[in-house]
Nucleic acid binder design. Structure first.
Length: 822
DNA sequence: AGCACGCCGACT
DNA sequence: GTCGGCGTGCTC
């Protein structure tokens, strides 16, 4: 028998291994196996297929070990991985890497042993000083990890020395596999069994303990808590040690009793997730919501995917809950995808109250061990309902009935950097299709792709356009930055109207959100005399000034340095900051409103595990009057006391060189505006711009998504943009500018020859021309939207890339393929 | 992607 | 001489 194994390596090949007789019974699709790879390495992979066909052109190596008693991945998942690798032009090993929580990936460590037959006294081996040092250290430690020698012998010579010792027969080297996941355990104690079976034993024991007060006390306390004769099953479960110590028993007496074998100490595996109360919160749907549920059911008769277009505060959550309940009752599983930030909000608590411990949460800030437990929970049926971020798509579901993607327009559903560069919304639709499940896309401002599909009937469409409790849309105000500037009314980047509105809100003790989509203090600093701007050494960007840490930082590679005292170009001391980031807004606000309590929420203040939660809780508790933030604040804030939202610089969002900038601006401004005023109160939104005459503002203000869509979509059609075509971007990356450009140009020429209806643009320097010392060039392909054309084209494209990489001069060029890029 | 192999320059 | 740089080839 042979097994095709998926390995975590980016090589577009199957790896076939021999299955020895001893494993033939135990192996199957989805089992983790340990296999030798190359000379030294041992990898763990997942079995994708078991078959009797021996590979023809090479000798298959044997599988070393099968690691599981039951598969950790099911056949459907492997099918899904395969689809993803094909669609997003990457290797299945890369998909596997993204899919498995790293706790399920095993790592191997090289360990070194002294050879048992090696006699250090025996002469004849010339050993140099460093070899002797290694031997001496080994003699003391018996066994060591290779990396441990790095402390003793700095430099990269360790491997050579060990190799030399190996050839002299002085040491042995072996690979030890370490399972990264470790279950959480608890230390418990209980009364030894023998005291339960014979009653006299216990009396004898008390006689024996006479005079040993402390020990007696322990025993009495234990018996008081656990009535061992009435309820012997309680004794089996035992007691946490600290329950006794908390009750005043002495630690050492407990230990003595354990030593005397009166008490036994044992460990039990416990879950990292507290048992929640079984959900029993019921919900009542409003008549409108009931109607929507009915409509969804109706459309699901002949549509598999549905767009639920519900404005902020229209009560989508209750509709979700109702539908989830129905599917769970029918015995199927449910997946609810959310953008990361939305996972920290009441929505989760809300759902937890309803679904209790049937619901698993999969968050990117969870530890590895926690993720493995969610994975296993899904595998074993503990969690039939999971709410999680993009990567929860990969959990081992076997019978999904419903997938919901909330805030489906969110760009964070697209993974950029390591392959697979997948769009979780689209992948979820495919996953649902494989499960014969239904999909709901929920949003107040749908992605154009989704709305387009709803319009042409591919998706069902249900609209909720009444705010819950009939709360009204906020009042919008456009503030003309240039006009205020002329009249000298612009103070510290705030127009008069925004300042007044903030003051009003503060006076009424209401809260304010200020949105500025740029972190740091200022985008850059500049010399007033010669115009010099500090650039990153490794990237083609100017450095952002962060005042708080008093440093210049590159947002692309993390490079930082102290700002210079004088201009290095001309020596001038007139260095000023240019532009406005969140830090500066925060500072300006504290100057304008010294009495207000101000907080900031951006990547820099939320880096820690519970970063956002802390800020959100503070804000929710009313300890903060004004919250400044990047797009993070556009989601997940549902606080009744926010009555004003200010957008500092709408133009920044609008003039991004990208065909989606209009769509994005509409979404971001609408979303952040939705935070203003809820329930009975009507909120205010102030948008600062230099171009108040633009049509998009009136569309945002009237909440007229459809008008906006109609107008934009015409342009998309005219200029061949999605959703009318498929976009594929190929980036070439190399440390040498010319090589990167050349590779891109050659690829363009090759791609042009592929027979398909398409337009190829480029090569063009990337928006950021250099990142981490690598130059970036890209070509864009606009491709006809038929599935067969796409499949053919992608196959050809990958072949062309391989062709190029076979050429010497392009060997070290990296080609990154991004399907449906942002 | 790693990692070994192998061929060159810069030092003890 | 050796150490370590990196170009090249390979992984069932």
């Amino acid at each position: 028998m042979y097994a095709d194994v998926i390995l975590p390596v980016p090589i577009p090949k199957w790896f076939t291994y021999r299955v020895e007789a001893e494993f033939q019974e135990q192996i199957g699709i989805g089992y983790r196996v340990m296999v030798p790879f190359g000379n030294r390495k041992i990898l763990t992979g997942i079995v994708a297929k078991v078959h009797p066909k021996a590979p023809e052109i090479y000798q298959a190596k044997a599988i070393l070990d099968v690691l599981d008693d039951f598969p950790v991945v099911n056949a459907l998942q492997i099918k899904f991985w395969n689809w993803m690798a094909g669609y997003y032009c990457c290797h299945i090993g890369e998909v596997m890497n993204a899919a498995l929580p790293s706790g399920l990936k095993l790592s191997t460590e090289s360990r070194v042993h002294l050879h048992p037959n090696f006699d250090p006294e025996a002469p004849g081996f010339p050993m140099d000083g460093r070899e002797l040092l290694v031997l001496e250290t080994l003699a003391k430690h018996d066994e060591m990890r290779v990396e441990q020698f790095e402390q003793i012998l700095p430099g990269k010579t360790i491997h050579k020395i060990i190799k030399s010792l190996l050839s002299k027969g002085a040491v042995l080297l072996y690979e030890s596999v370490k399972e990264k996941y470790s279950p959480k355990t608890e230390h418990r104690i209980r009364l030894a069994k023998k005291f339960l079976t014979e009653e006299n034993q216990l009396q004898d024991l008390f006689l024996e303990l006479k005079g040993k007060q402390k020990q007696e006390q322990v025993l009495l306390q234990y018996l008081q808590l656990i009535p061992v004769f009435q309820k012997p099953e309680l004794n089996d479960a035992g007691l946490l040690k600290n329950v006794l110590t908390d009750a005043g028993c002495s630690q050492s007496s407990i230990d003595t009793l354990i030593k005397k074998e009166v008490l036994e100490s044992f460990r039990v595996t416990i879950s990292r997730f507290e048992e929640q109360t079984v959900g029993n919160d019921s919900i009542t749907l409003s008549p409108l919501q009931q109607e929507a549920v009915q409509e969804i059911h109706g459309q699901f008769e002949d549509k598999n995917t549905l767009l639920l277009h519900g404005i902020t505060g229209s009560g989508k959550t209750e509709i979700y809950i109702e539908l989830i309940k129905e599917v769970l009752d029918s015995g199927s599983q449910v997946l609810l995808l959310l953008p990361e930030i939305a996972l920290t909000t009441h929505l989760v608590f809300r759902l937890q109250k309803v679904f209790g411990n049937k619901m698993g949460v999969y968050h990117s800030k969870y530890s590895d061990n926690e993720r493995v437990e969610v994975w296993q929970g899904v595998l074993k049926g503990r969690f039939n309902f999971v709410i999680g971020v993009r990567s929860s798509l990969f959990l081992p579901f076997d019978s999904l009935g419903l997938v919901i993607i909330d805030e489906e327009h969110e760009p964070s559903y697209k993974q950029f950097d390591p392959a697979p560069r997948f769009q979780a919304r689209d992948a979820a639709i495919m996953l649902a299709w494989m499960h014969q499940a239904k999909t709901i896309l929920g949003s107040a401002t749908p992605a154009f792709e989704s709305f387009f599909n709803a319009q042409n009937g591919k998706y069902g469409y249900v609209k909720l356009d009444k705010r819950y409790g009939n709360a009204e849309l906020p009042h919008f105000h456009l503030a003309d930055i240039l006009k205020d500037k002329k009249k000298n009314l612009l103070k510290l980047d705030f127009t008069r109207i925004l300042r007044e509105k903030i003051q009003d809100a503060l006076n009424r003790q209401e809260q304010v959100l200020i949105f500025q989509n740029r972190r740091g203090y200022a985008p850059y600093i500049s010399c007033e005399d010669c115009g010099w701007i500090p650039q990153c050494e490794h990237c083609d960007v100017s450095l952002t000034y962060h005042q708080y840490q008093e440093e210049l930082r590159c947002h692309y590679c993390g490079f930082k340095e102290k700002p210079p005292k004088a201009c290095p170009a001309c020596g001038s001391h007139k260095l000023t900051t240019v532009g406005v980031g969140t830090e500066r807004i925060e500072e300006n606000l504290s100057l304008l409103f010294p009495e207000a309590r101000i907080a900031r929420m951006d990547l820099d203040t939320t880096r820690s595990k519970y970063g956002y939660q802390r800020i959100l809780e503070d804000f929710g508790a009313g300890n903060v009057d004004i919250l400044v933030g990047t797009q993070m604040i556009t989601k997940g804030l549902d606080f009744d006391r926010v009555s004003l939202v200010g957008v500092v610089d709408a133009d920044r969002i609008l003039y991004f060189p990208d065909f989606r900038s209009g769509e994005r601006a509409f979404q971001q401004i609408t979303q952040v505006a939705g935070r203003a005023g809820r329930r009975e109160k009507t909120g205010d939104v102030v948008i600062q711009t230099r171009r108040p005459d633009q049509l998009i503002f009136s569309q945002i203000m009237s909440g007229n998504y459809t008008d906006f869509y109609q107008q934009e979509i015409r342009e998309r059609k005219q200029f061949y943009y999605p959703p009318f075509i498929k976009n594929i971007k190929v980036t070439t990356k190399h440390k040498d500018y010319k090589t990167a450009e050349n590779a891109s140009l050659h690829l363009k020429n090759l791609v042009t020859t592929i027979e398909a209806k398409k337009i190829v643009l480029g090569p063009e320097k990337s928006l950021i021309g250099k990142i981490k010392n690598l130059y970036l060039f890209e070509i864009w392909i606009k491709l006809e939207k038929s599935v067969s054309v796409q499949e053919y084209f992608k196959k050809e494209l990958m072949e062309k890339i391989m062709e190029l990489q076979a050429e010497k001069k392009f060997r070290s060029v990296r080609f990154l393929v991004d399907v449906d890029p942002f």
